[in-house]
Design a protein around this nucleic acid. Structure first.
Lengths: 251, 251
DNA sequence: CGACAGGTTGAGCGTCTTCAACGACCGTGG
DNA sequence: CCACGGTCGTTGAAGACGCTCAACCTGTCG
């Protein structure tokens, strides 16, 4: 089975949320924690490769990622696929579907994932009762927007090599901030097909471009993923710098 | 001078806001109107070509567009420019800068524009006092996100002709909903350089691509802009449909 | 009048695509 | 047990799509 719902007896309590302890995320007040605990209605557990949300669906839920890597994408009728962004622990998925009519994109798991499930119908009460959390939600949306802006710049105006370097540096940064990567764990779980569909290139040319980065010692391609060996060099090739935000909100 | 601030004696009152009467925008409650009237701190009036906001700035303001066309963009160090999206009446600009540290993109006017100015420092009180407006803000952010998703799909996976057709159909739709276009006014005020920088193409190739659309009778290129003659045909070429939302929020 | 922005067109070239074939690996089933 | 198909990665060859360079035209503005 591609996914299952954990019983509430086994699921993680918000007060013991493994993400909350990470210094990167902002702290909740007691009241906020109570509200969120109550807002949470379940936990979704998926295999790698599972589809979490599909375009066009009118899902009753939205989620925050607790564990694992995933990605958002759209496809054209003839099968051409574009990966829009990646999701890591702390990210919300399904907000678009919750606020607007229906999902305009799909979400798929790259690794096994754990997601915290909320009920869409109760979203408005979050706005009414906790301005701070509502503000955080807007913060998250604004950050997603600025990431998409950078991706657009990348696909539209960077060369294939620059694009690839940017993407890998970007994924490293996101993974690092989410606690998925550090000095010992530098493995990003994407296939070359994922990279190609993110960069707007063919798989063949992506392969040749990645090889150039490998030859320069910036990455090492493994099975279904790669180690990021030299982020700084990648940033230099891409002419990109991650912006350093101290703390981020998290719902 | 590129821009000036109107004195409060001459500026539009929120209760008489020219946008509010359009059926496309949702109605405010009396309380909300009072709050917004108070939230508004001035009006910005720009010439065509004026820079409204610049990347890296720490602007104290955010704006809603009242009149005119504009666009958001980013540039790389060597001058390569990518247009991210267009802004029309009803759109917010500067929210990113208000929520996060600083602006990650610039905004420029395509035509003379009128913008309604708000103070960034008072944004949080909007969240505290008017959940409905806060929700609207998130709605706007989510919609911007879904537009950027579609643009990414377009630049990444559509051919030059499809991309051009998509962009023009998209601009027509946005202009129409904002009341800038109708059956008699079908003129979109962008140069071919703007189109090129939106599509991620060179100006030369953009010119040749637009000519193909002209030859097929879908558009007619004029001076610094074009008439959209057959939106349906453009949508067909692009394999794209605008999603029909009845009403949208507006702050 | 000259300078400049915007648009148009042709020629040549390079990046990236498609097609094709092949090797490695893995799980499944005969 | 091995054969088989499927996914993933790799490489070469040919050709298309889009880029750069270059020239020229138009209209506008100081």
């Amino acid at each position: 089975m591609a996914s299952d719902f954990r019983q509430s007896s086994t699921r993680v309590r918000c007060s013991e949320c493994p993400l909350r302890v990470k210094s990167h995320f902002r702290a909740f007040s007691g009241e906020e924690l109570d509200f969120v605990s109550n807002f949470k209605r379940g936990e979704l557990n998926t295999d790698a490769g599972a589809t979490v949300l599909v375009e066009g669906a009118n899902s009753a839920h939205l989620y925050t990622v607790l564990e694992g890597w995933g990605f958002r994408y759209k496809i054209l009728e003839d099968g051409r696929r574009q990966i829009l962004n990646y999701v890591v622990p702390g990210d919300m998925v399904g907000l678009q579907g919750a606020v607007m009519a229906e999902m305009q994109h799909s979400v798929e798991a790259l690794t096994p994932m754990v997601l915290c499930m909320f009920e869409r119908s109760r979203l408005f009460s979050l706005f009414e009762r906790h301005a701070g959390l509502a503000y955080d939600l807007t913060w998250l949306a604004a950050r997603e927007e600025s990431i998409l802006d950078e991706h657009l710049l990348s696909i539209g105006r960077r060369t294939a090599l620059e694009r690839a370097a940017y993407l890998l540096a970007f994924l490293h940064e996101r993974g690092r901030l989410a606690g998925l990567l550090d000095d010992d764990r530098r493995y990003v779980p994407v296939t070359q097909a994922h990279v190609a569909d993110t960069l707007g290139l063919s798989v063949v040319h992506t392969n040749k471009t990645l090889k150039r980065l490998s030859d320069r010692g910036m990455i090492r391609w493994l099975d279904r993923g790669c180690d990021i060996l030299d982020v700084r060099a990648l940033c230099e090739v891409a002419n990109w710098q991650p912006d350093e935000t101290r703390q981020r909100p998290f719902i």
